[in-house]
Write a protein that binds this DNA or RNA. Sequence first.
DNA 1: CTAGCACCTATAGCATTGCTATATGAAGGG
DNA 2: CCCTTCATATAGCAATGCTATAGGTGCTAG
Lengths: 240, 240
Amino acid sequence: MSLDIQLPPRERLLQAAVELLANSEGAPVSTRKITELAGVTAPTLYHHFGDKEGLFDAVVAVGFEQYVASEMDLEPTGKPLDDVRRMWDQHVRFGIEKPHLYLVMFGKVRPGNRSNRVSEAEALLRGKLDRAAEAGHLNVPPADAVRSILAANIGVTLMLISEPEKERNFELSDMTRDAVITAVSSEAGIADSATPVGASAVVVAAIALNAALESSNPQQLSNTEMKMFLEWLHRISKTT
Amino acid sequence: MSLDIQLPPRERLLQAAVELLANSEGAPVSTRKITELAGVTAPTLYHHFGDKEGLFDAVVAVGFEQYVASEMDLEPTGKPLDDVRRMWDQHVRFGIEKPHLYLVMFGKVRPGNRSNRVSEAEALLRGKLDRAAEAGHLNVPPADAVRSILAANIGVTLMLISEPEKERNFELSDMTRDAVITAVSSEAGIADSATPVGASAVVVAAIALNAALESSNPQQLSNTEMKMFLEWLHRISKTT
DNA sequence: CTAGCACCTATAGCATTGCTATATGAAGGG
DNA sequence: CCCTTCATATAGCAATGCTATAGGTGCTAG
């Protein structure tokens, strides 16, 4: 039941924590299980990490470095706002692929006590947004843009994580991403909302009809007709 | 140290839980402190609520009802999307005013396991958005709009809660709110002031869709399907 | 009036949790 | 060879969520 590979205990503890964190679906992981799997006793853990939270911080630091690295691997596109979009996507992907790590990083909110990881993620985003601002692509201060984008990004990721895997609809991410980024950017100002991207009069009308039908069922169509009608309506409502 | 007011133990437990939850700044609240403050022993708690989580659920249910009530108190403005904006603001205000309750509701995310409160909040929003859709103010299906808005709303609220009270910048909320709502909305509503009095929303929407289809034929339906679809649309458009 | 029954509460204690006071071992420098 | 320093282990504490069991308490049936 212990990691036989003879590494220094510190590394074994980290490895054990990662493994248990990954396999226990969101359930709390005890220090005892960790030390047991690492083949080590309790004081060793506290000698090296001081705290359970210290150990988890170390684990998260590793994960966060991977996340940052995966972002740094990508070359800047030249359009800073496109970089921001890509960063958003990386963020979401990281959360989906390693939910346990992500939740340790961003999941436990405390009043008046912002977590380090949030600050670090903010700094990362800030870099890109400063460049966007220099290029005149922002219509709000970068500091404001960062907070808005990051808040939405975390909110979306948490929501996707909390959804059953099968039901996950990533359009949610794209939609919200473009919404907040467009809002802070001066490229396509907020004002042109009258002609939203990809929306056609047909889609708008189809959605409206669908909603209206749900609240009152007219008698002009039989049940089977209505069923088919609704399905087609649904298909029309789906853009792209 | 105990609540002297002689209420039924169940109520005393609820009251004690609320009080401790409110005063302990985000720190975990133990069942022992709760039962002690309520002047009651452990089994009583488990008899009435089954679980610590059960007790907290009951507490949260009370808080949520207040939240819903505060929303219901407001009369609809007539513009569904304005109602949505107000709902967003109510959500944020609730989170700021009762962070402990809010965090119990929305703070503990588990992979693949959406919380009841999220679903309930979704249903609330959904009501308003359906009306917006009926009025032709949406350019995405209401279900998608709900998720995007709610995810951003929760994200923003969590971020505001996690910030030191002095630094809180509520512009973050307004900015993000308008961003996501604008993104899902088509202010060029099809059924705005031109809505004939007395005509049902279904008929209006059907006529609008018919008109929209005449100018652009979508690819989602085959020719035969489209033919039948148009005929049914026609039947629906005929007022009885 | 009393026997029985359902409901509610208390006594006492279990297993697990994070963490630590203290002791033991090993490695290196004087 | 001793002494310091670092790293690990023994054993156990206090707090946690929860429960097996038993004891009231009030209501209804006989």
